[in-house]
Structures are given as structure tokens and as C-alpha cells.
Simulated scan of single mutants.
Amino acid sequence: MRILIVGGGKVGTYLAKALLEERHEVCVVESDPRRVHEMANILERDVALLGDGCRPDVLERAGIDRADVLVADTGDDEDNLAVVLIARKRERRPRIIARVNNPKNEAIFESVGTDTVIPATEIVLRAIAQEIDVERIAPLITLRKGNLALLKLSVPERSPARGSAISEIGLPHDCVIVALERDGELLIPSGETIVATGDTMVILAKPEARGQLRDNLIGSHG
């Protein structure tokens, strides 16, 4: 199957990696040269096209007219909507999957003919809401083949990461904090977000990274 992904962030990169392992033909359109370089290192192959995925000519170069599936996976709903609208007008229309970052925009994506709408915030909220009464770092979901897991972690008072920015806490390489719940509010963190006691994190990582995550975020007192 030919799959075109617009958006080469960590989610898009991990998605491309999983699809390549399933022997699909994948192309990722990304506008940031740094991310294109990082993707080549992680995937160990050149599947990224540098360009603006909101432009029809760039999508044509990426093979939109041969794609079976198109995934609009940027962190900006306006960009994702532009990609959807371009794809809908193609003579050979692929199946369209779109990530929606703001739940208020979900109806808009559905109204323009998106085949599958993925409300990122709602998925994370459901994950956080699950009752898991085991250890402080617990698996929520293990993805296909066990290569990646969605983990839930609560930051204790004596965490070595407390008061540090996420970019400074030494996360494992193949790891990303996709959401953070603080005082009842759901946040999408950045590298500058400061870790606080009581934070509940949802982390996408390889299962074997749990030990390092425990050391860096919980410490020996956890």
C-alpha cells in the first residue's frame, strides 16, 4: 500500500517507521529541514520530501495521485484542513485520515469529507481517564508488535526532574511526552514546559525505556 504522510514530527516519524516495518511504501512531507534530517537517521532510509504539504505541487511530487492513503498529521489544524481539501479534489482520491488537535474543529473536518478523523486530545484524555492501579509508571497501550507503548507516569514530590524543563530531563532518544495533566487541565507540553509535582504524563516510548524513565522522572524514591 502507498501511504503519504504530511507532517514529520515525532508522531509522523513513528508512524512511518511502523508502516515501513509492515512493508508499505511511505513518503513523508515535512517543511523543516532539521526534521527531515532527523527522520533519515531514525528510519535509516530516505522517505522524506522537504516541502510545504499545503501546496498542491509539493503533494504531486510526493505522489498524492498514486497514494492509497493520505495522513494529514501536522500539529496545526489549518494545515491539516488544507491538505484534506487538496486531496479531495484529486481525480484519484486517496483515503483521507486527519489528525485534529482542537476538538472544536472535528465537525469541520467531517463536513469536508475526511474519511477518518483522529481527535488527538480526546484520545489522550481517554487514556488518562483509565483506572490503572499498579506502579507509578504503567503501560496504557502496547502498539503493534510491541515496538512502542503508551505509558502513564505520575511525578512524585521527590522527582529528580521537578522544576526542570522537559528538554533538560534526559528523556530516552525514542521517547516523547504527548500530554500532561496538571490540576485537572490537559496540556500539550513543549521542551520548555517545567515538570511539577503531581503532573500525570502520557509518554510514547519503547517498552524497554521504562527503566530510564523511572530513574529520570521518579528517582530512587519512587
Rank of each mutant, 00 (worst) to 15 (best):
I3H: 01
V6K: 02
Y14M: 13
L15Y: 03
A16C: 04
A18K: 10
A18F: 05
L20F: 02
H24M: 06
H24R: 11
E25M: 06
V26L: 03
V28L: 11
E30A: 03
S31Q: 13
V36H: 06
E38G: 01
M39G: 14
M39C: 02
A40F: 01
E44P: 00
R45M: 12
V47Q: 07
A48Y: 06
D52R: 11
G53M: 11
R55L: 14
P56D: 05
D57K: 06
L59V: 07
D65E: 13
R66A: 13
A67Y: 07
A67E: 10
D68C: 00
D68M: 02
L70C: 02
D73C: 10
D79L: 05
D79M: 11
D79K: 15
A82Y: 02
A82E: 13
L85K: 05
K89M: 08
R90L: 14
R92G: 01
P94A: 10
R95M: 13
I96W: 12
I97K: 02
I97T: 00
A98Q: 08
K104D: 15
N105P: 09
E106T: 10
E106P: 00
F109R: 12
G113L: 05
G113D: 07
G113T: 05
D115W: 08
T116M: 15
I118L: 14
P119H: 03
I128Q: 15
I132C: 07
R136M: 10
L140T: 06
I141A: 08
L143P: 00
L143R: 01
R144K: 08
R144H: 04
L150A: 10
L151A: 11
P160K: 10
P160L: 12
P160Y: 14
I166D: 07
S167H: 00
P172K: 11
H173G: 00
D174W: 04
E181V: 15
D183H: 08
G184V: 12
E185Y: 07
L186E: 03
P189C: 02
S190M: 09
E192A: 14
E192S: 15
I194A: 11
G198Q: 09
T200A: 05
V202S: 13
I203W: 10
A205I: 03
Q212R: 08
R214W: 01
N216H: 14
L217P: 08
H221W: 10
G222I: 05
